[in-house]
Design a protein around this nucleic acid. Structure first.
Lengths: 115, 115
DNA sequence: TCGCTATACCTCAAAATGTTAGGTATTGTT
DNA sequence: AACAATACCTAACATTTTGAGGTATAGCGA
């Protein structure tokens, strides 16, 4: 049973895509499968947001694309650029900042205690 | 120095508004000040999202509005309904679910360890 | 060989959400 | 008198996400 995305997803696809592409080059379809399998199918990125996000990251210079044909199918491999790594860093910091504040306001123990 | 909202804000205004209105009745302007002061000005909700969100929550039956005039100024006090409490519960669960998964994928220690 | 599933890319219209930049009106302060 | 603070609000625009498609090849079982 695959979960649909939630209301709290804005920016999350981009964040996870950049995070994955830091560790190794991947192609779109592979990224989608990876995100699903990485969390027991608790979260999935629809292809309708995945591909446009990859394109916009590439246009902004955060990613580099390279087409490769494997077994008669074309894959577009993406790699993170320096600019992509910088962007990931600031996005992760921002994610940490917002979730800490919200979690604290919701009454959970502050995220500041972990890490 | 007041922070602007971040990319990771989708649904957060609604979440915080409901959370605040569970503890006591408040009016819009008061909610905005409360959110700012509650976290050292690290986060603020613009009035352009605050008021429309209050109106939509009221229309959906999650909030009840009551006008009150104090010192020549009109305040609209909101209180959470049963339906509003139910909605808050599911939103908090969803917030917990998403942030846990994302945090884990980002490589921090899993949120599962706290609470 | 037919049909189905998986792989692999993509787009478009509509909905939802948030930002920027205003507006009105009263009260308190300088 | 001028300005900040209180207190409500909206409209135009940009961005993000969803839902629902579309194309094409490869592999597998009946």
């Amino acid at each position: 049973m695959r979960r649909t995305n939630s209301d709290f997803m804005t920016g999350v696809p981009e964040l996870l895509i950049l995070k994955l592409l830091i560790s190794r080059d991947m192609y779109g379809y592979e990224i989608a499968r990876e995100i699903e399998s990485a969390n027991g199918e608790g979260l999935s990125i629809s292809e309708a947001i995945l591909y446009p996000t990859l394109h916009s990251l590439e246009k902004r210079g955060c990613l580099k694309a390279k087409r490769k044909t494997v077994n008669g199918r074309t894959r577009v491999y993406y790699s993170a650029t320096k600019s992509g790594r910088v962007r990931l860093n600031s996005m992760m910091a921002e994610w940490q900042r917002i979730t800490s504040i919200v979690s604290e306001m919701l009454g959970r123990r502050a995220d500041a205690s972990i890490r």
